[in-house]
């Protein structure tokens, strides 16, 4: 038996043992539920930051002007933002709001609160079609 045919034979053996469905799909139900739960926790943290008087410096919270994160329209970013003088992505506009109505200090783009805020805002807007650049 040549080397090549031995390899072929071994491959057949492996295929016969491992169920085909499992091999094609590396995500288990457990994976999906873990990841969903990780996301849900971040959304909850986002809602907490969205209603946290300590996010800025004057006690004003995001939800005061944006109940259920309405009128944040995450589906429209990136877009030209007059307050920033250029096309911007959403976290930049969130920082604008933290600096101005909340009179606070910018968050870093990878600050866990900044990521959570975007998760919450986008979750409240789920199902709406993407409309980048829209005003």
């Amino acid at each position: 038996m040549s080397r090549l045919s031995r390899v072929r034979q071994a491959a057949w053996l492996i295929l016969a043992i491992v169920p085909v469905v499992g091999a094609a799909d590396p995500f288990t139900k457990q994976d999906l539920s873990d990841w969903q739960s990780a996301y849900d926790q971040v959304v909850t943290a986002g809602r907490d930051a969205f209603t946290d008087p300590k996010l800025g410096n004057n006690g004003v919270v995001c939800a005061q002007c944006h109940p259920n994160a309405a009128n944040t329209h995450p589906e429209t970013y990136p877009k030209f933002q007059k307050q920033l003088g250029r096309v911007a992505v959403m976290w930049e506009m969130i920082n604008w709001c933290i600096r101005n109505p909340l009179e606070g200090k910018d968050l870093q783009p990878d600050d866990p609160r900044m990521i959570a805020l975007q998760a919450y805002i986008t979750q409240e807007r789920r199902g709406v079609a993407l409309a980048p650049g829209k005003h």
Partner: peptide, 15 residues
Amino acid sequence: YMEQGRCVSCHTIAE
């Protein structure tokens, strides 16, 4: 000019 000074909102700049 663009950030803390808030100048750009009235004295506008485009792309």
